[in-house]
Simulated assay, not measured.
Amino acid sequence: MKLKLALAGAGLFGEEHLRVMSRMADVEIAGIADVNAKAAESAAQRYGALDWGTDIIAQLDRRKTDGLIIATPGQTHVPIAKQALERGIPVLVEKPMAMTAAEAATLVEREALSQAFILPGHVLRFSKPHRLIADIVGSGGIGRLLSLTARRYRDDSHALRYPDIDPIMMTMIHDIDLALWMAGAPVHEVLALRNPAHEQRAQTVVTARDRNGAAWTLATAWTFALDAAPPDRLEIVGERGGIDFETGAYLRQYGAKVREIDLAREEPDDPLYTEVAYFADRIRSGRPPETVTAKDAHAGLLIAEAALASLSQGGIVKLPG
Rank of each mutant, 00 (worst) to 15 (best):
M1Q: 15
E15H: 07
M21R: 04
S22Q: 15
A25P: 12
A25M: 11
V27G: 06
I32Q: 10
E41Q: 13
E41V: 00
S42T: 12
S42D: 14
A43Y: 03
A43E: 08
Q45M: 12
Y47T: 10
G53V: 01
G53F: 01
I56D: 09
I57Q: 07
I57C: 06
D61Q: 11
R62G: 12
I70D: 07
I70C: 09
T72M: 02
P73E: 00
G74R: 02
Q75T: 00
H77T: 00
V78H: 02
V78E: 11
I80D: 09
A81C: 09
Q83N: 12
Q83D: 13
L85R: 06
P90V: 03
P90Q: 03
E94L: 00
M97W: 01
A104E: 05
T106M: 12
L107I: 06
V108I: 08
L113R: 15
P120D: 08
P120T: 09
G121M: 06
V123K: 14
F126H: 12
K128R: 15
P129K: 04
I136N: 07
S139F: 01
I142D: 07
G143H: 02
G143R: 02
R144K: 13
L145T: 11
L145K: 08
L146T: 13
L146R: 15
R154W: 02
D156A: 06
S157D: 08
L160M: 10
R161A: 14
Y162S: 07
I165T: 05
D166Y: 01
I168K: 01
M172C: 05
D177L: 05
D177V: 05
A179Q: 03
A179T: 11
L180V: 01
W181R: 13
A183L: 04
V187G: 03
H188S: 14
E189D: 13
E189H: 06
E189V: 10
N195K: 12
P196M: 14
A197R: 15
E199Q: 15
R201A: 13
A208C: 10
R209D: 06
D210P: 02
N212S: 07
W216V: 03
T217V: 10
T217M: 12
T220M: 03
W222M: 08
A225E: 15
A225C: 04
A225T: 12
L226Y: 05
L226N: 08
P230Y: 09
P231R: 12
E235F: 04
V237K: 11
G238M: 08
G238V: 06
E239C: 00
G242K: 04
I243G: 06
F245I: 09
L251I: 08
A256P: 11
I261S: 03
I261T: 11
A264F: 09
E267P: 06
P268K: 11
P271H: 06
T274S: 11
V276W: 04
Y278V: 11
F279N: 04
D281P: 06
S285H: 10
R287C: 10
P289H: 04
T291H: 01
V292E: 03
V292L: 01
K295C: 01
D296T: 04
A297Y: 01
L302I: 02
L302Q: 12
I303R: 00
A304N: 03
A306T: 05
G314H: 05
I316P: 13
V317C: 03
V317T: 11
G321T: 04
G321Y: 00
